[in-house]
Design a protein around this nucleic acid. Structure first.
Lengths: 329, 329
DNA sequence: CTGTTAGCGCTTTCAG
DNA sequence: CTGAAAGCGCTAACAG
């Protein structure tokens, strides 16, 4: 049988209360008795029943991590980052995403209301009003991984999309001397997409380049299609800045079909620095996002909230990006 | 305040027992009272306290998923597959891996002994004796994702490394007419590695091809290094079969440095079909493993064990692989 | 079909 | 510093 505090108590001739105190060493217990209890515990090969502990404390050592539906190489990094931080605090991560029969919203609601969680990290692209309400009512700390800084009610870790996009565009214009640029966007309702676009446009205006914008959807096919439209026009841009690497790959496909060469005939740059990008021919110039860092920052913030170590109203942390220069422009 | 069964009971003028029964509809409750209870529950916006439920039942609705240290695109697929299956059963997945200060073993032990889990899926490359003991003593169902079929004590889902490797080798010899082949292995203690090697050798013997084996380590650098050795020899093989795609990429690097062309001067094939492989130049011929499927199968088996739906002693399921023919040989 | 009651293992007052 | 006792919310006998 699994040993309990009761058995330790009996064997050590003390009360369960003392055992509990000794085991959690929060209150003063005579060193002598504590040592005795600890040695008995060890002898019995005791491990606390976490479920019981969680129950009496009415809180758990679990935090939730909710990811979007589509799997993606980023997610492992995020999970890893989160897990690494919170594990040190004695917490574990429950990972879930949306499923067949339910909307992500319903799922999150069930998840939160289960009472299983002490905190939640939510990776979303847009947060519906109904969900906000549930999150707020849940009374557990929530950290968003999101690009929308206008969410003023939750702690947020975001990718610095705007600045990264701006910097890349500036680089293309001022260093690479491109004077006509086209940006292929992600889905219009996506915040990452929006900020990348805005950064691009602002930099083009600032540095006086001619630019255009083509709508994409973050998929390879979307990139291919957008690129096809571009190449059909009378004058094509000197360089394409795709809002993510997958679309840049679509551009590679289309440009090669059109018999054009990268970067001689047209430059291509991406955003994300996914694993494959370094292996493309030519290797893709892109923006690297420090994903694991985002997971760590989110976890760190969440833990601090859970432990009430922060009292500021709402924190918004930006994770920086890095320009990766390769051969595609 | 959060509503409890007690409050529902009071409001509905019944006992807490009846409330519990109605809510879990396992025993017969008069339809009328059940409807009443349900409506009161709804009115109070009641959700069961899962922690309390887990506590009284002395089991949880959580399963653990332990992954190796190194993150990898496979893991998202596995997590996804697992989560998808178990979510339907009202379970959640706790994902963890090894951390800074502890060995994976210690971690697993802590994890299991926490009492938090109803079952465990373990992705390991080799299972130490001590760990086996802990796993066996834990009395929770364990499913291994492992390639070693000689582990007779645990349910196992494994990649069919041997047959896939055999088939690929057979294809190279009989269809592609290669007569001298070299296999670059993974680490010698790794089971996947071992079976891939054995499949290769057996097929070479069976179909009468000349072969050699070079030791690798599943990394890109390892593949590059092994390939360098090969190319230094007086006669180089007609085709290299790398035990995974990452090493095949290393071969690409080295072959290109040596001024050789794939597949004209030398063929290269891999194993795994990682995302990048389709984008290499030339696209890599390789073996695709249905990863998400492995996660699903593991979860399915685990759930059945947890629910006692299987009484067989130990099950061993092989996940099949598929040959992917591209342009590298 | 329903109510009463005990109790899961642990922490936490409250006394001493 | 330590013990007694209550109780977290829920389920599961056991009666009725």
């Amino acid at each position: 049988m699994v040993p309990t505090v009761k058995e330790i108590a009996k064997k050590a001739n003390v009360s369960v209360a003392t055992v509990s105190r000794a085991l959690n060493d929060d209150t003063k217990v005579k060193e002598e008795t504590r040592d005795l209890i600890l040695s008995v515990a060890k002898e019995l090969n005791y491990t606390p029943n976490i479920i019981a502990r969680n129950f009496v404390k009415q809180k758990s050592n679990l935090i939730g991590l909710i990811l979007p539906e589509i799997s993606d190489e980023f997610f492992t990094e995020i999970i890893k980052g989160v897990d690494e931080i919170i594990y040190d605090e004695g917490f574990y991560t429950i990972v879930t995403s949306s499923h067949k029969y339910e909307s992500l919203e319903d799922e999150i609601i069930t998840f939160i209301r289960s009472g299983l969680l002490s905190g939640l990290i939510l990776l979303v692209s847009d947060l519906k009003a109904q969900l906000k309400t549930v999150l707020l009512e849940s009374h557990i700390p929530v950290v968003l991984i999101d690009s929308n800084p206008d969410i003023k009610k939750f702690d947020t870790i975001s990718i610095d999309n705007y600045n990264a996009s701006y910097k890349m565009t500036k680089y293309l214009i001022t260093k690479k001397k491109y004077s006509t640029l086209t940006h292929i966007t992600g889905p219009s309702e996506n915040d990452d997409s929006l900020f990348r676009k805005t950064g691009f446009i602002d930099a083009c205006k600032k540095y006086g380049a001619k630019y255009s914008v083509e709508e994409g959807d973050f998929t390879r096919e979307g990139g291919l299609e957008a690129c096809r439209k571009l190449l059909k026009q009378n004058t094509r841009p000197q360089v394409i800045f795709a809002a993510n690497d997958m679309m840049a790959i679509g551009c590679y496909d289309q440009i090669s079909r059109a018999g054009l060469k990268i970067p001689d005939d047209i430059g291509v740059v991406g955003f994300d620095d996914i694993f494959v990008s370094q292996y493309l021919t030519p290797p893709l110039t892109t923006v690297r996002v420090h994903i694991e860092d985002i997971g760590k920052k989110a976890a760190d913030l969440l833990i601090k909230r859970i432990k009430n170590e922060i009292t500021n109203s709402v924190l918004s942390v930006k994770a920086t990006c890095e320009l990766i220069f390769r051969k595609s422009c």
